[in-house]
Amino acid sequence: MGWISNTLQSLISGIAVGSTYAIVALGFTIIFSSTEVVNFAQGEFVMIGAMISYWLTYDDFGLRWPLYVVVPIAVAVSAVVGLLLGWVLMRPRKDASPISLIIITVGASVLLQGIAGNQWGKDAVPVPPFTAVDPPPLDLGAIFHNGSLFPVSVQSQQLWVMGLMVLLVIGLTLFFNKTMVGKALRAVAVNKHGARLVGINVSRLVMGAFALSAAMGALAGAAIAPISTGNYAMGAMMGLKGFAAAIVGGLGNFTGSIVAGVLLGVLETCGAGFLPPEFAQYKDAFAFIILLLVLFISPNGIFALWRRKKAVRA
């Protein structure tokens, strides 16, 4: 019966990690739909969220502020950075090739990582969890049997990460469907020129989209760092995994990003847990192998395979 407990345990940690990928993937999606730019600096927002949470709570800096103050600050700082990046991306001449826009985001990623390394050093850093007490080991067996069949232990922070992901998805759905700004953003995603014609200030909205996805990234960073620890370069891997999820889900596809993000997380932990070690050691490559396969077989994401009607783009 051990394998049931093991599978459940792997699933839970996979979903927690996958939730972070999903949030990052959503960030890619929001920016891609409004600008058609793949923002390679997306992962750095996760890093900003984690590192500012560490900076303002850690003893050595003498601040030790409570998390309910620190996390909003981290999110706000990241949003401002996102806004700036959006502003910079609007600068090049209108006929600039998309390649130069992509390279600008690569540059921003390198720059942010450099600043973080300069400011906070290269060591891994501890970030405090949102709540200190972990729930007692969950025992699903107790429901059917008198206890101890499939014991599963969950960190409270894992629950936070999953909860935040769900809240963000609900919030974003409401935002895009119910608010004026959200609807305007969707209009920009569908047709930029049309949106401009009906009086939507496109460049301001694009900057807003950047700020939004940056804020989401920072929140994900503050939430995952207590589990994973933080460091100046964590954004690169997070960004790439989130990016892979966004592509697998279909760039610009909201639901696809979420599903693909969570799936990727689960696949990684299950791969590491159930494949023989000779293969499990390549688990970091899984995301990229899937990414390549999807690009080759169905570049609009795996969901496009059976859902032929897809948004018109590019």
Binding site: N6, Q9, S10, S13, A16, V17, I224, I227, S228, T229, T269, C270, G271, A272, G273, F274, A280
Partner: peptide
């Protein structure tokens, strides 16, 4: 960021 799978084994 997560060593649980290996430790479960």
């Amino acid at each position: 960021t997560d060593m649980q799978p290996q430790l479960i084994r």
